[in-house]
């Protein structure tokens, strides 16, 4: 162990690296305080402090009377990297999948006409998808695409193909994304679909993607459990 650093910090680093390397995995117990104090030959107070560091970092969850568990991993949402849910999930070592809950052709109506810059009577294709990681619900997405920019859109299996892939295949050049993030409290049906408690805090992402002619080619609303996401961005000074 490195000299100079407090013992409990060294221990919390060791435990952290075990979690990051996957030796200790989500849902598992960590060894008891007594076992850990034997393993590291330090007293239990030091172990308790080391655990507390990881609880505050969100890597561990303590449940009274049950013990200490490995928390679910949060994934970084890098704003500048034109990031997205599939990439986020792949980075965090879970297998992404998608379930199409609903799809329809309908008139745009006032809200989507404004977002997509089309008229209210124009048709749109609406797609509601549940995104999963290791078969666990992560995000709920409501997507609208102006009808006609993709031929035979009803015939495309969006459980297998990503929307951006499909758009690129139809020679749509994706050039700009406008996004907003806000936080809200979940109500049904989103809470039920994402398997979170009603009134728990969620993150709402609204994005609109534009092509090289600055025409909107899709708009998506994403509901995501706030425990699943951490937003990151960067700027440079002149």
């Amino acid at each position: 162990m490195a000299k100079g650093e407090a013992l409990y910090l060294q221990i919390s680093k060791i435990l952290k690296s075990q979690i990051v390397r996957g030796e200790l995995r989500y849902g598992q117990h960590i060894p008891s305080e007594r076992d850990l104090s034997k393993t590291f030959s330090v007293d239990r107070k030091t172990i308790r402090k080391a655990i507390l560091v990881l609880v505050e970092e969100g890597l561990l969850t303590q449940i009274q009377g049950k013990g200490t568990y490995i928390s679910k991993q949060k994934v970084d949402y890098d704003v500048n990297a034109l990031d997205n849910i599939t990439q986020m999930l792949q980075r965090s070592n879970v297998t992404p999948s998608c379930r199409v809950l609903f799809q329809e052709k309908r008139p745009a109506g006032p809200k989507y006409a404004r977002l997509l810059g089309i008229s209210e009577s124009d048709s749109i294709f609406r797609l509601v998808r549940l995104r999963l990681g290791d078969d666990e619900p992560i995000a709920l997405q409501n997507t609208c695409v102006p009808y006609g920019i993709i031929d035979d859109i009803e015939g495309i299996d969006f459980e297998m193909h990503s929307l951006y892939d499909v758009l690129s295949q139809h020679s749509v050049k994706l050039c700009r994304v406008k996004e907003t993030f806000s936080f809200f409290e979940f109500s049904d049906p989103e809470a039920k679909l994402l398997n979170v408690a009603p009134d728990s805090v969620g993150c709402l992402i609204n994005d609109v993607t534009y092509d090289q002619l600055q025409h909107a080619v899709e708009c998506t609303t994403t509901f995501i459990n706030k425990d699943k996401i951490k937003i990151h961005a960067e700027i440079c000074f002149d």
């Binding site: 704003v79 500048n80 034109l82 990031d83 997205n84 849910i85 599939t86 990439q87 997405q141 997507t143 990503s162 929307l163 951006y164 892939d165 758009l167 690129s168 295949q169 050049k173 994706l174 050039c175 700009r176 994304v177 406008k178 996004e179 907003t180 993030f181 806000s182 936080f183 809200f184 805090v201 994005d207 993607t209 090289q212 899709e218 998506t220 937003i231 961005a233």
Partner: peptide, 23 residues
Amino acid sequence: YAKYVYYYANLVSKRPFEGSPTI
């Protein structure tokens, strides 16, 4: 206070991002 704020990003890619970002 979470209910009083929202975050905004406007990302312009120098080249079209072909399919790799998959929203």
